[in-house]
Design a protein around this nucleic acid. Structure first.
Lengths: 218, 218
DNA sequence: GAGCAGCTTATTGTATACAGCGATCACGTC
DNA sequence: GACGTGATCGCTGTATACAATAAGCTGCTC
């Protein structure tokens, strides 16, 4: 969107994720406006977006507070993501054009190059990974699905910076990406959906382990 | 939300659904503000909500237009609704408290009474029906699921006023509601999910028939 | 006559002032 | 001392004025 409103959005979001705005604390428009160096108008805009994304919630009297997240929320997000992404890849298997399939393959090749460096380029991996999921979503050709999923995917980035990737995990992720493309190319929605399901579920368990929520290995 | 912003939202939405704001036409904030008798501020609020619900879309230069709907959109909405409501009723089967189950049963009893009048009370049916789905959603205990589903359910009301209900259809709908509650009471998520799936799919086909999109009976 | 430059106008973005509503606290009453 | 009741104040909702940006038009050039 527009500049001031965007900057406000990014800043507030960053402060929530970093903990500077702690869970449960109240966000007052005027106060936030001063911090962001803009007026209340763009702040209100930003806050309504953040409310949609469930970073903040409002009481019945319209006061805003930073959402408090539990392990249950993380589970919920991944469960919904699983359902939606499975559906997206099934649809993609039915609808993707040859050009889209070629693009997916090219993306996977780029990922392979990024992670097979002497020291894997994790930033490049993450970016290409996002792009890959976005391409699947585009191939699914469902605006509403895209909207729901995008809102959801924004969220679990909470502790993302803390995630550690070893080479085996990166390779496994790539192998799944390739299998999904194969399933799409063969026009097999069940296959595509199944691989995507395990792809997301695995990501979920990696996430939970790394955040110490489930102590045992997998 | 607040009063002016809410009224603007309702008015704009109504005018879109009635066709007074025709698909593809531009909505200018000032113009709409005058029509609604409020200032641009609440209109902007309302329009951003409507954008979220995909009633309107914005160009890259931030101008707003009324969305143009196709049969594909309707299919998409029902498909997503099916997936989400199936999930909701499965979760409800795992989590609903005894009190909630009792409430669901009471609701179904109220529906029975409404539709078994000499002339069925369709308005009461529709309201109780909405309540029923809201209760399932509450029992599912997933805020994000609720948010997604609510945004989706708002939409297909497009031609709702045109829907005709005969007694057999109402009875069938009630029977499904009762079966879903039975499945929840038995804590059988697959059963609950399956009945809900067919419940929504049937509604979809009724809708399509009544709007003449699929000519053949079912 | 086609295409581009620059101006004009239409529309959205932001700031600010004021209105309204609910929360909170102080005071009085039982 | 607890609880209701009223006043104060803090925060959000709305209106309006102004700024910025993009679309469209006009007239110029080739």
């Amino acid at each position: 969107m527009s500049k001031a409103s965007d900057r406000a959005y990014e800043q507030i979001r960053a402060k929530i994720l970093s903990g500077e705005f702690s869970p449960g604390s109240q966000l007052k428009e005027e106060e936030v406006a001063e911090i962001c160096g803009v007026s209340r108008t763009p702040v209100r805009d930003a806050m309504s977006r953040l409310e949609n994304e469930m970073f903040i919630y409002r009481t019945e009297s319209q006061r805003s507070f930073v959402s408090e997240w539990s392990g249950g929320d993380v589970e919920e997000i991944f469960t919904l993501r699983t359902m939606l992404e499975r559906h997206a890849s099934s649809r993609a298997a039915e609808r993707a054009s040859e050009a889209m399939i070629a693009n997916l393959r090219a993306n996977n090749a780029a990922i392979a190059e990024a992670i097979r460096q002497p020291v894997p380029d994790v930033d490049a991996f993450l970016q290409l990974n996002r792009l890959y999921h976005a391409m699947i979503l585009e191939a699914a050709a469902s605006d509403r699905l895209a909207m729901m999923l995008n809102r959801l995917v924004l969220q679990p980035i909470v502790h993302r910076t803390a995630l550690r990737y070893d080479r085996a995990q990166l390779e496994r992720s790539l192998a799944e990406h390739e299998e999904i493309v194969a399933a799409i190319a063969r026009r097999d929605p069940d296959w595509a959906g199944a691989v995507m399901t395990s792809h997301i579920r695995r990501a979920y368990h990696v996430y939970m382990n790394q955040n110490g929520i489930t102590p045992e290995g997998f």
